[in-house]
Nucleic acid binder design. Sequence first.
DNA 1: AGTCCGCGAGAGAGCGCTCTCTCACCCTCT
DNA 2: AGAGGGTGAGAGAGCGCTCTCTCGCGGACT
Lengths: 348, 348
Amino acid sequence: MSQIRSGAMTPARRTPTLEDVAREAGVSRATASRVVNGQENVDAGLRLRVIDAIASIGYVPNAAAAALVSRRTGTVALVMSGSDGSAGQAFADPFFGRIIGGVVTCLRDRSMRATVQLADSAKARNDALDLVRRGGADGALLVSTHANDPLPRMFLEAGVPAVLFARPSPRLPISYVDLAHDQGAALAADRLAARGCRTVATIAGPAELPAAIDRLTGFEHAMEAHGVPYVHVARGNFTAESGERAMTALLATAPDLDGVFAANDLMAVGALRALQLAGRSVPDDVALIGFDDSQPAQLTSPRLTTISQPLEAMAARMTEMLLERLADSAKPPEPQIFRPVLVERESA
Amino acid sequence: MSQIRSGAMTPARRTPTLEDVAREAGVSRATASRVVNGQENVDAGLRLRVIDAIASIGYVPNAAAAALVSRRTGTVALVMSGSDGSAGQAFADPFFGRIIGGVVTCLRDRSMRATVQLADSAKARNDALDLVRRGGADGALLVSTHANDPLPRMFLEAGVPAVLFARPSPRLPISYVDLAHDQGAALAADRLAARGCRTVATIAGPAELPAAIDRLTGFEHAMEAHGVPYVHVARGNFTAESGERAMTALLATAPDLDGVFAANDLMAVGALRALQLAGRSVPDDVALIGFDDSQPAQLTSPRLTTISQPLEAMAARMTEMLLERLADSAKPPEPQIFRPVLVERESA
DNA sequence: AGTCCGCGAGAGAGCGCTCTCTCACCCTCT
DNA sequence: AGAGGGTGAGAGAGCGCTCTCTCGCGGACT
């Protein structure tokens, strides 16, 4: 009731600043700052006094003040760029989770952190760009999974340091990491060929996705090299349902099928279901290979043989590339392509 | 070769500041600031001039400067606290992904963002706490999945605003959101009872996890209420393999089993495999229910009946609670419990 | 017509830190 | 022994913004 705010009377314990540390330790603010930031050229005795002072007054540096003058925040924007309206649900996909894990782990070794942005609308894209432009982050990592994403170009034109996950669809002079999708598909083709499959089909992904295209053409070329000039093709949209539909259609067209390569595991799971429903045994009647080495691939019976991509390593490298660019703004753009690996399980 | 850095000669286009905007618009810096921050009490004419000035000189506010004086960053630390050494791989679990999605979506409506921290070692825990104490974030969201996590207490004792996902294992005066795990288990029990199951088992999670305990006791109590006083219990560790092992053991102990509740979907998938290997038909011989409504639950044959938790909504609410706490530091701690839902599919 | 009130605008004081520049000192080399 | 170089410490100038305080003006009320 009668709580009086007497500004003059309350000494008001401020949070201690570097100035206080300096006074307590009997050194200048500059020296205190050097100790706090781990610079080497400080006398051991003084360093000790500063450290004691920090402990005794409970000093905690202020990040905003440091960022204001150093123009570095130690933060990287991790922009997940789904197609418009894909909202937060995209994160349910372990694909994003694994990338986040790779990025965060890499950053934390350098005492840095990531802030996660969702760019699934024009406004969200602008916000993501603005974050970096306002100095809320030092640079950006763009993970875009759909074709013709305007985001990479926006960052490029704004002169904001950025590295992409996956090759930009219209090519752009900007660094990126990607998987050799065609090699992955070739791995699948090799496997199928080695098993003696001669009537082969593939369930491809959306035609506008570079990764999907590479997986398709890579598979076709590799099968051709194995003496199988024609490959049945059905399209899916990376969901299990679409895989099931595609497989059913394929079975109608080519009942004598003995090998199938699905452009991702989810479609492979759907295909497996269609195959089993049609009374085909996998892998005895039909060999089946997926792509991604996702969790579902390990849970089916038979377990899926699939192509794995080193997402964490790719994410870590992407992060390093951004950090290199941050350290040297003259660093030229560079692609970095990773090799996929065949994971042999039971379905092929 | 002879590129000379003449500091004195280059006018060096600085990035424009609020001062520049004010000058250009012919107003004071304070007024420009008001317009930038969308304050209402500004004359319409002046506002327009300021907006024009911003556009014409390409002004972008500086986040660090604003944070320095306002003591708000608009950032929330999202701390994923796995058990020590669980590293980045934890993110592969869609559980984290969905939470991240819920948090990020909620924050962005308020023009805020989240920075993801991984707290799986003593150092990482300190770093996470330090981030907030240094003003790198306004508060913290702690998602901890293992018992006796020291993190909540650390934040509480440091006086750092924080809200938890899941009830802290030794109880603490701190806000949290959680699922009524016992109710979820009861939903499963009801379903099994309704199908006429009389010889029932459950595959429980790790005994030290509060959520696992609640699911077990909730199931036992509900079955008892349905006139089934004894429930066979096997332990798993939330992996498919452990579920398969547990199911095999259960089948040996109680071959006449007709209903099984697994404490999560992954274990249910493993159980399904064991059941099918043992020649039992699901759901005809044995009804099976999982928990989580994760992706694998939708991919098995038969598809899993399971209990779903509204993770995104819980994450969003957790975020709101933190924001409320940030707006009113006197806000008392409060738990918020969400209701699980039975998802009827094919396995029960 | 005079006074009071309310509201919009400007002035200015920092927020806490980094970093360059300068200086003092000591050691080494000639 | 003197000059030069290297190293560590201090001084001080901001970084760009927010926010309180003050002031001036116009309308309403007496």
